[in-house]
């Protein structure tokens, strides 16, 4: 199992140069059945990451570019009257795929956003009074531009909470950039990627995540972290129980990726910025610095 995971990470690493940590985080997110939000500037490789993940994991992949004039039906699908058969037939929207890349989700209107977010939570879609299940597994990788860019609708907190993680890719390292200049073509690499696993293996791996053990000391640390967010005057609001659970799940997936059957505090610390960053709010606004402080203030060993 460890071999497969390493191979997956290595494969994606060939497409997305020098972003191993982010790739692992994305993988951990998918393994713990969460949805991923990538926030970054245009052209940083968000789409590439999503695409590569789909390729390597052998998932059906669709991509939707969100625009401000999009309607929910554009994602979910629509019933169309067919003259030949004289009946309405449901044309599935892009949401009916195993991995959906919702590009620039914050460019669309809240109405459309919420249609997608509902599907993410329920893993099913109701159109024309009929409930249709989405394929298994179902992931959404949404990307969004930083909020200060023009023409964006910020996702409200309740919807941000649906995403297990929020990561950003950041500029490539010097070596990676140099490799790009030297003519390494990520797109060509992307096309060459072969699926390493199939849906069943993925399901099995997701099952393994739940088996990663967490000791008392570790749960204690987690509890103190969560308590701190709830009591610290710096946090406008603390982590919800859903947030705390998400943290535990993501940390388990992270431990699995690193081939451990037990959780270590490092696992929690590794996923904490991505899991808690968009859930916490400080007076100032963003939670990223808050998480940094949180990690420093709460010691791993109970005082």
């Amino acid at each position: 199992m460890q071999k497969i995971i390493s191979a997956i990470v290595a494969d994606i690493g060939r497409v997305l140069l020098g972003k191993e940590h982010q790739v692992k985080l994305a993988l951990a997110c998918l393994l713990s059945r969460g949805h991923l939000l990538i926030e970054d500037l245009p052209g940083m490789g968000k789409t590439t990451l999503a695409h590569a993940l789909a390729q390597v994991l052998g998932l059906t992949y669709k991509r939707v570019q969100f625009t401000s004039d999009m309607l929910p039906a554009d994602i979910l699908g629509v019933s169309i009257f067919e003259r030949d058969s004289g009946q309405f037939r449901f044309h599935e929207g892009p949401v009916f795929s195993q991995l959906l890349l919702a590009d620039e989700i914050n460019r669309s209107s809240p109405k459309t956003q919420s249609a997608l977010l509902e599907a993410m939570e329920e893993r099913q879609v109701s159109v024309d009074g009929e409930t249709r299940p989405l394929p298994e597994p179902f992931f959404v990788i949404a990307t969004q531009n930083p909020l200060h860019q023009s023409g964006t609708f910020a996702l409200p907190e309740s919807q941000l909470d649906r995403f297990l993680m929020r990561i950003s890719l950041g500029y490539p390292t010097r070596e990676a950039e140099r490799a790009l200049f030297l003519g390494v073509d990520p797109r060509a690499q992307l096309r060459q990627l072969k699926p390493r696993i199939d849906g069943n293996t993925l399901k099995k791996m997701q099952g393994l995540v739940g088996q990663v053990k967490a000791s008392e000391s570790l749960l204690d640390y987690l509890e103190r972290l969560v308590q701190h967010t709830r009591q610290s005057p710096e946090c406008a609001m603390g982590l919800s129980p859903r947030g705390a659970l998400a943290l535990l799940h993501a940390a388990r997936a992270w431990a699995l990726i690193h081939g451990r059957s037990h959780l270590l505090p490092e696992d929690i610390q590794a996923v904490l910025p991505s899991v808690a960053g968009h859930r916490l709010q400080s007076e100032g606004g963003d939670g990223a610095q808050l998480v940094e402080r949180l990690m420093r203030q709460v010691d791993i060993i109970a005082a």
Binding site: P265, E266, Q269, R296, V298
Partner: peptide, 18 residues
């Protein structure tokens, strides 16, 4: 950790053992 602190290597708060 106390012993390490005496040796000049204090563990920072929140720093994981590894």
């Amino acid at each position: 950790c106390r012993r390490m602190a005496r040796a000049g290597m204090a563990r920072r708060s929140g720093e994981a053992p590894r």
